[in-house]
C-alpha cells in the first residue's frame, strides 16, 4: 500500500524508520517545508522520494497515496484535512487536531475502515485505553482513571501549550473506546535527568463480585496484543485488586513504555507508541484492502 508522510520532524522521521521495516507499506513521499530538516537528509539517504513543498507534494502525487500520515501540527492538519478529503485521500492524523474519530489499534481498529480521517487520540490514550477495554471485557467499569507521566524532554510545545486537550481527549477515549462509564485522565511531566521512561497507571472501579481471574487474564491478553505493535509496552506491576468504598473493587495496572529508539530516544515511549500505532493502523488497512487469498 502506498503511504505518504507529511512532516519531517521527530515524529515524521521516527515514523519513516518504522515504515521502512513494514512489508506491506511503501513510503512514496516524505514531505516537509524545512530544507534543513535532518529527517529529509535521512530519507534521501534511504532513497525515499522527498519534497520541501509540504502538503502540495502530497496532493500532487500521481498515482495518489492510499494513506497520508500527518505529523505536522494541529493547526496545519486542520488546514490540510479538508484538502485531503476533497482529493479523496485517507488521512491518519498524529497531531492533536481531532478532525476524525480516534483509533486505538488493539481495541477499535474497525473505525479505521470506514472513516476518511482518523486520529490517534493521545499517547496516554494509546497506552491506557487498551487496559480499560480489557477490564471492561470482563467486568463493568463504572469509573476509570489514568495517570500518564512523561519525561519533560519528550513533551513538545504542542502538548505543553494545550495540556487540557490531553486530559480531555484521553478521558473521553477511556469512555468511548475503553468502555468506562466515566473517565478521568491526569498528565504529569517529570524533568529528571536522565529522563524517565513513560509511565502509566490505570485504575478501574468494578463491582465487588467481579471475576478477578477473568480480569487478570483479559489484561494479560491485551498487553500481548499491544506488544504486537509496541514492543516496549510492559506491565511493570499489577493487576492489583483492592476493596474500596461501597464493597467495590479497584483494579490497578502499572505500565511502562520504552521506545524502540528508531529516531526518537528510548525514554520517549510516549512518542514511540504513537508512531507504532500509526504503523499498526496502516498495516491493518493494507490487510483489509488486499485480503489474503483463501
Amino acid at each position: 500500500m502506498r503511504v505518504a508522510i507529511l512532516g519531517t520532524g521527530n515524529i515524521g522521521t521516527d515514523l519513516l524508520e518504522k515504515l521502512r521495516r513494514s512489508d506491506v507499506l511503501d513510503v512514496v513521499m516524505f514531505a516537509g517545508v524545512d530544507p534543513e530538516s535532518p529527517g529529509l537528509a535521512r530519507a534521501r539517504s534511504y532513497g525515499v522520494a522527498t519534497s520541501t513543498d509540504g502538503v502540495e507534494a502530497v496532493l500532487g502525487l500521481d498515482p495518489p497515496a492510499d494513506l497520508v500520515y500527518e505529523a505536522t501540527s494541529a493547526a496545519a492538519h486542520r488546514a490540510n484535512a479538508p484538502r485531503f478529503a476533497d482529493a479523496g485521500l485517507k488521512a491518519l492524523d498524529l497531531t492533536p487536531a481531532k478532525v476524525g474519530p480516534p483509533v486505538v489499534p488493539a481495541v477499535s481498529i474497525d473505525v479505521a475502515f470506514g472513516a476518511s480521517n482518523l486520529n490517534l487520540t493521545t499517547c496516554g490514550g494509546q497506552a491506557t485505553v487498551p487496559m480499560v477495554a480489557a477490564v471492561s471485557s470482563a467486568a463493568e467499569v463504572e469509573y476509570a482513571e489514568i495517570v500518564s507521566t512523561v519525561a519533560s524532554l519528550s513533551a513538545g510545545p504542542g502538548t505543553r501549550q494545550n495540556i487540557d486537550e490531553f486530559t480531555r481527549t484521553t478521558a473521553s477515549a477511556l469512555e468511548t473506546i475503553g468502555g468506562a462509564a466515566r473517565g478521568k485522565a491526569i498528565i504529569i511531566l517529570n524533568p529528571a535527568d536522565p529522563p524517565i521512561l513513560m509511565r502509566n497507571t490505570v485504575m478501574c472501579i468494578v463491582p465487588g463480585d467481579a471475576d478477578r481471574e477473568a480480569v487478570a487474564a483479559a489484561i494479560a491478553r491485551m498487553a500481548a496484543r499491544v506488544q504486537g505493535y509496541v514492543p516496549g509496552y510492559r506491565i511493570a506491576a499489577g493487576p492489583e485488586f483492592d476493596e474500596v468504598e461501597g464493597g467495590r473493587l479497584k483494579v490497578s495496572v502499572f505500565l511502562e513504555v520504552t521506545g524502540a529508539g528508531d529516531f526518537l530516544p528510548p525514554y520517549a515511549g510516549n512518542l514511540d507508541i504513537m508512531t507504532a500505532a500509526a504503523v499498526a493502523v496502516g498495516e491493518q488497512l493494507a490487510a483489509e484492502r488486499e485480503p489474503v487469498a483463501p
Binding site: A192, A237, F254
Partner: peptide
Amino acid sequence: RRRVVGGQEDMILD
C-alpha cells in the same frame, strides 16, 4: 532517589 515530582502519587504504590 527517583526524583519523583508533585502529582506522581501513583508512583508511591508502584
